[in-house]
Amino acid sequence: MLEAKLAEAGTLKKLLDAIKELVTDANFECNEEGINLQAMDNSHVALVAVHLEAAGFKRYRCDRPMPLGVNLTSLTKVLKCAKDDDITTLKAADEADVLNLVYEAKNSDRIAEYDMKLMDIDSDTLGIPDTEYDARVTMPSAEFTRVVRDLSQLGESVRIEVSKEGVRFASEGEAANGSVLMKQTDDDEDTQAITIEMNQHVSLTFSLKYLVNFSKSASLCPRVQLMMSNDVPLLVAYDFGQGYIRYYLAPKIGD
């Protein structure tokens, strides 16, 4: 069986917000180390990988590995019934077709209980190769959100170029072009810092609508990392205290 007690429903809500527009159904793979989810969008352009560590829960017990097939729209509805600071317990028996969610109010005696149907999901888990990336950019997640949102007003794609100068995001639209250069900052310790580690110059083009989607994870984590090598998928990584959410995005490449 699974029993996982989270300090706050808000963490799960934010996580769902960050993936629900990319994927509709996903298996939450539970084992003694924690909960993992890997899912691709319908067009096979983007992949999201989530990990929640067992140690990050107030209480965690999973006797044997079990997949929980979840419709994310349904889970979003059930989570809306929780207050952000409710203590939240997820429970499922072995071979169960129901996920039980219990919300305990922090400052009152309210206890709410919900049961949600689980489903069988055929998921083809992809093997993601360990990659040595040529460039790693670390920046405030809010800045990343802003730049992709701004450029998505202009065009469909963004070219991301990393050089010693900094990281440049450029988009060409029918009516307007735009580019944003973010220079490396001196003070690495500053939470507003932009740091660039680079073996070689990289230049890649991606669909902006996916990046706008990924950037919703800014609510989970103040920093984001972009990992890039020429002609391979971009990795957008948000590490928060209890785990991580990582997105992979296939590039657009010339014929």
Binding site: M40, V45, T125, L126, G127, I128, Y248, A250, I253
Partner: peptide, 14 residues
């Protein structure tokens, strides 16, 4: 022109 690649051409089925 640029073509959108699929992730399946980069990642193997595990």
């Amino acid at each position: 022109s640029l073509k959108q690649k699929s992730l399946k051409s980069f990642f193997s089925k595990g």
